[in-house]
Every structure is written in C-alpha cells, then in structure tokens.
C-alpha cells in the first residue's frame, strides 16, 4: 500500500538504526486528513528518530514512508518540505544569530506558497512582532519555541511534525503554544504532536500512539484509554 493522494502519512515497517543499534522497531503509523495524532513515550523511546526518518534525516532507515501519495524515501529533505511536510525540531534549533524575522522568513522561502503569511504568524504571536528585529538567541525559551513553530508553519505544510514543543517551558507558556493548535487545524493542516507530557498531549489528540523502546506499545483514542493502561505501555514492564 502506498497511501492515497490525500492521506497525510502512511508509515509501514519502519526501522531506524544508529550503527548496530536499532532505535525504531517495525513501526506502522498513519495520519488521516485533518487528524492530530499524538505520539507519547519515555525519553529514548525513539520518537525523535521516527520524525527524523520521515524527514529523511536519519542515518539509516528501512521501511516505507508515504505522504500524500509520495514516496518520501526517494526524496531529499528540501523536496519533502516543498511537498508540504514540515518539522518543528526537538530543542527548537533556531538560527541564533539571525533575527526573529529572518528565522521566520527562511520557513517561507523553503516551503510551499499558501495562506499562512508572516503577518498571520505575527497576529498569532504578537510578541514576535515586537521582537522581530532581535537575534533569536536573545528570546526566552517560550518565544524561541514560537519562532520554531512559526518557521515551520510558514512553509505552509499539509502535515506538521512537532517534536516536544513543551520541553523545558513553564506551564503558562505551554498553554499559549497549545492554544494555537486549533488554529493550525482550522487551516486544514494535519499534525503529529510528540510529547513526554501525556496529559497535555492526549487532550488535543484525535488518536495516539505510545512508543516503548522503539516499538509501538499501544494505539488508541484518548477518550477510550485508561490511564493505568497507558502508563503500563509508556514505562513497560
């Protein structure tokens, strides 16, 4: 199966290796159009490696990855972004010496043309408009995360991959970031949201996958899931 043209993501039998070590183990995962899929899992469960493999940035991967009917395994990262898949990387990874505006504009230049413009990002995150000419390194962690999210959104993706956007941020700031997710969904953008924070992540998701030691340990809908069951599949044992 290669996935239909309107299916944002279909991953089958994905394995990711670092040398001899297998960090991702036969993962099958799909995202339906308009869906927010949460991936939860402890530190080291393979979540980041999974996203890197989608972006063709893993050292070595096996398996099949299709987005919107395209075989991502045969494409370069710039081609994947141009086709409408954008990543908010773990740890934000802004360009520290570039200004806020320059960081954001890079997202626009490498992406697809679409309805998300610089002005819209500034209206969603007014504090970025105030600080647009400051180097990114001078922003607070929360503001940097807004820039990282804005940079990915400006590529006008059809599928957005978010890797631990709440990591290391105060709860208030995390709340501000998560308030944006409905607006993103309203643009028709499908999402994978990766978090270690299970409660936060399940609250926004249509479906979730729990990763344990590189493999999928549980799949389900947040409303159907029992907390104890999730915890057992999160920590193993």
């Amino acid at each position: 199966m290669s996935g239909a043209d309107d299916e944002p993501l279909r991953v089958e039998k994905l394995n990711v290796y670092y040398g001899q070590f297998r960090a991702v183990h036969d993962i099958d995962l799909t995202v339906a159009a308009g869906e927010i899929v949460s991936v939860i899992g402890a530190n080291g469960a393979g979540k980041t490696s999974f996203l890197k493999a989608i972006m063709q940035q893993a050292d070595r991967a096996e398996g099949s990855i299709h987005a919107f009917g395209l075989n991502l395994r045969t494409m370069s990262t710039p081609q994947i972004v141009a086709a409408g898949v954008a990543l908010v990387p773990e740890g934000r990874r802004l360009f520290p010496s570039l200004t806020v505006a320059e960081n954001l504009r890079i997202g626009w230049e490498i992406g697809r043309r679409g309805s998300i413009t610089l002005d819209r990002i500034y209206s969603w995150f007014p504090v970025l408009a105030e600080r647009r000419d400051q180097p990114a390194r001078r922003l607070s962690g929360g503001q940097q995360q807004m820039v990282a999210l804005g940079r990915a959104l400006l590529a006008n993706p059809r599928l957005l991959l978010c890797d631990e956007i709440s990591l290391g941020l105060a709860p208030v700031v995390v709340g501000q970031l998560y308030d944006i997710l409905p607006k993103i969904r309203a643009e028709g953008i499908s999402m994978i949201v990766i978090e270690q924070d299970v409660v936060r992540s399940l609250a926004v998701a249509d479906r979730f996958y729990c990763f344990l030691e590189g493999a999928v340990s549980l799949v389900g809908r947040p409303q159907d899931a029992n907390r104890d069951v999730i915890m057992r599949h999160y920590f193993g044992g």
């Binding site: 890197k52 940035q57 990387p89 520290p96 590529a155």
Partner: peptide
C-alpha cells in the same frame, strides 16, 4: 538579502538547516 540570511543560517547551525529542509550543502 534573503540568500545571505540563508547562508548565515547554515553558518549558525548546518545540522538544524538540513533538518528543516534548508540544504547546507547547497
């Protein structure tokens, strides 16, 4: 210029650039 900003971005963090689809090699 925008190309200059992209060159400086890659100078800042080539791995981050590659990760988001800005080819450092190019």
């Amino acid at each position: 210029t925008s190309i200059g900003a992209r060159i400086r971005a890659v100078a800042d963090d080539p791995a981050a650039a590659d990760l988001i689809g800005l080819s450092s090699g190019r």
